[in-house]
Simulated assay, not measured.
Amino acid sequence: MGKRGAKPKFTDVFCPNKECKFYGISGKGNIIGNGTYQIKDKRVRKYICRECGRVFNDRTNTFFDNVRKDESVIILALKMAIKGMSIQAIADVLEVQPATVSNWLFRAAKQCEKVNEDLMKDPNISKVEMDELWVIVEKKLPPRTENEDEGTWMWVSFAPEFRLIIDFILGPRKQYVADELIKTTDKHLSDSKPLFVTDGLKFYAEAFLKKYGEWMEFPRTGKKGRPKKPAIIPDENLKYAQVVKNKKGKKLQKVEKRVIFGENIDQSEISTSLLERQNLTFRQDNNRVSRKTIGFSKKIRFLYNQMRLYCTHFNFCRDHMGLKKEKENGSIEKNTPAKKYGITKSKWTLTKLLNYRCIKISTN
């Protein structure tokens, strides 16, 4: 033991080399310190993996890997982007190049994808609401026209109990986009299927059958007539209902609740009101998806990057007023959607979100 005490054991650090047999696994004793280096506002520790010889540091495989700009400037730029400010406006305020801001937004979206893939999986959710949000991309088009389905829509899956945005897809109102939304949402769910509730759009029922249906061939009965054709039947555990709004002109006449698949579905659970309220939050809080705006995205990839950052920040870093509760001492406890569900133990900061790295604790 030296004058500075025992050498630290890096039990929570893992090797980022995918070729290493200890990739993504901590606590194996293969990581040792390799000094530090100074950046503008702090020191960064370096490591060596004794198994494969890979040299890395605290910022490897995070948003800040090989980023030289001051972190506070980047965080401020991304907070502006979350609120829907344009890339050019952010560049003008911070006196950087628009291409630099665009690159930060792209890297942030990739980091958020990694966080969602690692943490947003196998949630035990009892109900999932799905809806589509009309957005403007490239040029302004009038909504509610014959060709509105050809425009860009934001398809969202939402867990109302925890106000958790499960995932989203950008695309036209077509069958293949509905199929993709169901597949993407299913990747985040556990084996127990929740109740799915959507609006009356016809594409959802076929998408659920494609994902959860089984091909059934019916035996011959021996009676006259043609035999029954093979068909796709829904899984016995699938529960799906629709909220259909009947309108006359622009006025709502009647709201009808339909059970499409499944049995014993409580009529009070057939609702998409909380997701529709979330759509209002999107529009009020984010200039890129507002209805009457000239701040819309000129390219769909810019909208995707911004919305991926926005939704992940919403889940992990933002207190939700609908999730607050009063403690015994009278104080109010605020919760983020991720904290409410139990994905995280506390509210994250944007810096913590951008510094997240996947980790697997060794059981040996």
Rank of each mutant, 00 (worst) to 15 (best):
K174W: 01
A108M: 01
E138A: 09
K245F: 03
T60K: 02
Y37D: 10
N246C: 12
I300A: 06
F261H: 03
K347Y: 00
P123F: 13
R45M: 05
S192K: 15
L309H: 07
P16L: 00
K202V: 04
E276P: 06
Y47N: 05
G225R: 13
E214Y: 08
K299C: 08
K223I: 11
K257C: 12
C15N: 03
R226N: 09
R4S: 09
D149P: 03
N329E: 15
A91W: 02
E263R: 15
L209D: 07
K28T: 06
R288G: 09
L141F: 07
T351K: 14
D92H: 03
C311D: 07
L119P: 01
E217D: 05
K239N: 10
T198I: 13
I74Q: 02
P194E: 14
T272S: 08
V128M: 08
H313T: 00
V135R: 08
I233Q: 15
E180G: 07
T293P: 10
E138I: 02
F106L: 09
L181M: 15
Q175C: 07
F158K: 09
K187G: 12
G53W: 09
R107V: 03
K347P: 05
A109F: 11
C49L: 02
A99V: 00
L105Q: 14
F261Y: 14
G262W: 09
Y23N: 10
K140V: 00
F162V: 11
Q97I: 03
I165M: 14
S72Q: 13
K79V: 00
I82M: 09
K327S: 05
E217V: 01
N264T: 06
K360V: 10
A81F: 04
F208N: 03
S86F: 06
Q88Y: 07
C20R: 10
E333H: 04
R283L: 08
L353T: 07
D266E: 14
K292V: 00
E150Y: 13
A109S: 14
R4Q: 04
E117F: 02
N116F: 00
C15H: 05
I39S: 06
I260L: 12
K139R: 15
K223P: 10
D58N: 11
